[in-house]
């Protein structure tokens, strides 16, 4: 949940990138890190295995600027995508303000996407959140690869609620900032509702 600090006039929000293994969550964060001005970002932390698979989480703090005199900070996290890291995934979802689901567009990952989305629903539920209600966007990643399912097909299965959906190619950065912006917008609008 967001942290509003009237003393330092700051607002902190937590955004989690979720999705099946190797779908490009860490790549999204790396692109954001590489393209963000030095003064707006903190250190990116990756708790990964020797083969660069996420073990616990990646973390990237971003300071986006001011809104109504409050410094707006977003803390971006990724979860480990591999199925057997479920206990760790649950922990990262604690206190989440918004979720980005990074889907792997490749045909052979179709089932993995569905499984991961179901897992997201269950784990959010365990933390007392409802996927139907929290700020949520979907990125169809790896659109540049040859063997991808159509966006319509992916959307029909993964996005019945019709949340904002974006096409992406996290390696080249296509759609990465658009995705972040879309989820940030939902999170900030949510604050407005609470206010």
């Amino acid at each position: 949940m967001s942290f509003i600090n009237y003393a330092s006039r700051e607002i902190n929000c937590k955004i989690v990138y979720y999705g099946p293994g190797l779908c490009g969550k860490t790549t999204n964060l790396q692109f954001i890190y590489n393209k963000t001005a030095e003064e707006s970002k903190g250190k990116m932390i990756s708790l990964a295995t020797e083969t660069e698979r996420t073990l616990f989480f990646d973390f990237l703090p971003l300071a986006l600027g001011e809104i109504r005199g409050f410094k707006t900070r977003f803390h971006l996290y990724t979860v480990p995508g591999q199925v057997f890291y479920d206990a760790s995934r649950k922990l990262i979802l604690k206190g989440v303000d918004g979720v980005v689901f990074v889907a792997d567009s490749q045909e052979e990952r179709f089932d993995a996407n569905i499984e991961s989305l179901e897992n997201l629903k269950d784990n959010l539920d365990e933390q007392g959140f409802d996927l139907e209600k929290i700020p949520f966007v979907i990125q169809y990643n790896k659109r540049d690869l040859p063997n991808v399912s159509s966006v319509e097909e992916l959307s029909e299965l993964l996005n019945p609620r019709k949340v904002p959906e974006l096409e992406g190619c996290a390696m080249s950065g296509e759609g990465v900032f658009e995705t972040l912006k879309a989820v940030a917008k939902l999170v900030l609008n949510d604050l407005k509702k609470d206010g």
Binding site: I11, I67, R68, F70, A184, L188, L191
Partner: peptide, 17 residues
């Protein structure tokens, strides 16, 4: 005390980016 975020506009959010 009205929340400072009650009147956030889409423009405010766009400006952040």
């Amino acid at each position: 005390v009205p929340s400072p975020f009650a009147e956030i506009t889409d423009d405010d959010i766009d400006n952040l980016f």
